[in-house]
Design a protein around this nucleic acid. Structure first.
Lengths: 227, 227
DNA sequence: CTTTTGTATGCTGTATGCAGCATTTTTGTT
DNA sequence: AACAAAAATGCTGCATACAGCATACAAAAG
């Protein structure tokens, strides 16, 4: 398996040459590898081997690892290198608790700021997600689900909130990736999403905030069994 | 001015030799320099010069910069190095909004979990802070103030919450550092702190949460003028 | 046979060297 | 004198080389 980083560097975005730096490319690549399980929790990130595998030198690789360490995806052990951080049940619960508070806040802010067009865009994504539910396309459903949550957070217009929510979502992605919920829970989740959209369209802060909170609380109950 | 990093590496903590790595030392050093204004917002972090000034080589320095970039204290501009991030009024407001939500959450959790001994420890710090208020020791007051907030967050027992709160507090420290509030506001802040401790001792979630929220909202109003 | 110590290997942590690109300055031309 | 073009300077970005520390294995002593 040749994991070498593709030559996507220096790609243009709208005429302007988007300069990409190698360490940033590596960060994204490693992040994906961790989320998708190519790098399991507890795996040591061997600088020599991993660097050779990706076709990059140790320096930018090390910079990328430090960046991910600050993000909380890897752990730095002095003189022993970096390992993919392993999350216990407690840590997952902690993250979900914070994520819940952040989505509740985002929901309130979104109700104040969202334009009709923006709400319509979410509604469209929501409808598409429902179609995936009806055709049992779990993968796409899951993806759109996350996207809707991110869109609501984005509506808050709060960059700090968006950033932190994104970081937490990334960390949890690997966990949820495994947590394939059963059909009974799935229907409930869809029902909650319907309520969510309705509350957002009515700009009902309290209701939206409450639904988002319950939604995550149930998500936790679903994954707690697999830990 | 010799800014060279002191030989604090490899200091012992309770018999066990605490191995320190250079990039981590540099991270802390740079963070302090940014907070205290030695590195003003917009300042370019020149690898050669800065490295020489600190007495370290470029590699660990660069790793430290990448780490701080992930923390949000510096900004990475391709081909132009790193600059100390400049926060606008909007961004500060965003951060305070999130910080408020975090402290409200922490307050609730703390009421559930705090032991009498832990509450007593906060009370002691609080009393010491009050003494600083009476003797007009602004600097020490300010320090203890932040410490109390951090202690309450720590009582939540939620590591994610503690981390994020710490990061935000660090980013805002530089701003608040400048925001020397007048005596009239100072008295109000002290009054709020008294209420805070009282609510915590009574384990009154809703009250503590509300006070913490108001407290930060006022803090924002105090600093908004200086931006 | 077990335990302890010494040695060897391999990895991380740090330093230095080289190439590419951006910026700035200088010189030539209009 | 002003503007443009070219060259030089200096910085970032990447790779490689070196040193220190941890671990593992082997050998010797109890």
């Amino acid at each position: 398996m040749d994991e070498a980083i593709p030559v996507e560097r220096q790609r243009s975005t709208g005429g302007r040459v988007q300069r990409t730096v190698l360490h940033e490319t590596i960060v994204n690549h490693l992040r994906d590898m961790i989320i998708e399980g190519d790098l399991a929790p507890g795996t040591r990130l061997h600088e020599g081997q991993l660097g050779e595998q990706l076709g990059v030198s140790r320096t930018p690789l090390r910079e990328a690892i430090k960046y991910l360490a600050s993000e909380g995806l890897v752990e730095l052990v002095p003189s022993r290198g970096a390992v993919v951080k392993r999350f216990g049940a407690r840590e997952v619960q902690d993250m979900l608790t914070v994520l819940q508070a952040m989505e509740e806040l985002a929901g309130r802010l979104a109700c104040d700021l969202a334009s009709d067009a923006q709400v319509a865009a979410i509604r469209a994504t929501h409808d598409e997600m429902i179609r995936c539910y009806e055709t049992k396309d779990r993968m796409q459903y899951y993806k759109l689900n996350q996207q809707i949550h991110s869109m609501i957070v984005a509506l808050s217009g709060n960059t700090t909130l968006i950033d932190i929510h994104g970081t937490l979502q990334t960390r949890l992605k690997r966990i949820r990736f495994v947590g394939h919920e059963g059909p009974e829970n799935w229907a409930a989740a869809v029902a909650e999403h319907n309520e969510m959209i309705a509350a957002l369209e009515l700009r009902d802060k309290d209701r939206l905030s409450k639904i988002l909170g319950c939604h995550l609380q149930k998500a936790w109950e679903r994954v707690r069994s697999i830990l």
